[in-house]
Simulated assay, not measured.
Amino acid sequence: MPVGGAGGPGDGAAEPGTVRPGGRTARVRAAVLEAAGDMLAEQGFHGLDLAEVARRAAVGKTTVYRRWGTVAGLVADLLTDMAEQSLPRSDTGSLEEDLLANARLVARTLSDPRQGPLFKAVIAAATCDARTAEALHRFYEVRVAEWAPCVQEAVERGELPGGTEASDVVRAVSAPLYYRLLTTDAPLDEAAARRAAGAAVAAARAGAFVRTP
């Protein structure tokens, strides 16, 4: 459900997510991001406090403030880490099976007791915080790019019309699952995953995602 240090805005330091740390720096980052993810899942974006994150992670407040600067900076780094840690795409040689694997992964993630509330919190925050929105967009760009080759290869095999926009097909798999998460209390189960993948495949074969001039 994605390193590096950054100070406050305008201090010339690297933005979170642009420098990959190692050793103790990596351990500090991992502890801080885990604490931040826990707090997001428990309390939402507006309950996220850098001092409390530092306490939970057993890290000095100065380190957290110097490195991430703001709550938005911390969330941006968390999303970067989540994108990098997400499972790689499946490659079964079948469009239906590849997209079903994607749907199952999305459903499993959003159903997770920690990851589901975390995503809800970040999505809610992105509606009112520009930096969080930018980080969320980058997260999904990474994930869509990971799975787009499934669709591109299907086009090459002749399973889909030429000119099919691969990224749109991948988004079409996830869209009904996120809508279900955010607007209902219905389970994100195997049936939901199969419907989402099947609908995306059917629409793609019908040419719904072919690029137009």
Results as ranks from 00 to 15, higher is better:
Y179H: 11
R20L: 12
A26G: 06
A154I: 09
T25C: 03
A14W: 08
E134I: 01
E34W: 01
T109F: 02
E159F: 03
G93D: 12
A30E: 15
A58G: 08
P213K: 04
A41M: 04
A51E: 12
A6T: 03
T63S: 12
C128K: 06
V59M: 13
W147K: 08
A154S: 04
G163V: 08
R171G: 00
L177Q: 07
M1C: 05
T212P: 00
T212V: 14
A57V: 07
L188H: 02
H137Q: 15
L181F: 06
Y65C: 00
T109W: 02
D189R: 10
R171W: 11
T62C: 01
R27M: 11
H137D: 15
G44I: 08
C128S: 07
A83Q: 11
Q85M: 15
G7C: 07
D77P: 05
Y65Q: 07
Q85Y: 04
P113V: 07
L79F: 10
R108D: 15
R27P: 01
A103P: 06
L100F: 10
A101G: 07
P9H: 13
G47Y: 11
P88W: 14
R171I: 03
Y179V: 13
G69S: 12
P149Y: 04
H137L: 14
L182Q: 05
E159T: 13
P176Q: 09
P149E: 03
V64L: 01
T62F: 01
N102T: 09
F45S: 01
A14L: 15
A175N: 02
V64D: 00
A206W: 07
E96C: 00
V53D: 11
D189T: 10
A202C: 01
G47V: 10
A166K: 03
A202E: 14
E165L: 10
V75N: 04
V155Y: 13
A148E: 12
V201W: 04
A103E: 03
E156Y: 00
L78Q: 11
T212M: 07
D77T: 09
L95K: 10
G5V: 11
E146T: 14
L100E: 14
S86K: 00
G47H: 01
G4T: 14
V144R: 07
L33Q: 13
G198W: 06
H137E: 15
G47I: 06
L33N: 05
D129C: 05
A26E: 13
A51C: 00
L99A: 08
R143H: 09
R24G: 03
P16H: 09
G8W: 07
R108G: 15
G207W: 06
E97V: 03
A203D: 15
R114L: 15
M1H: 12
L78G: 05
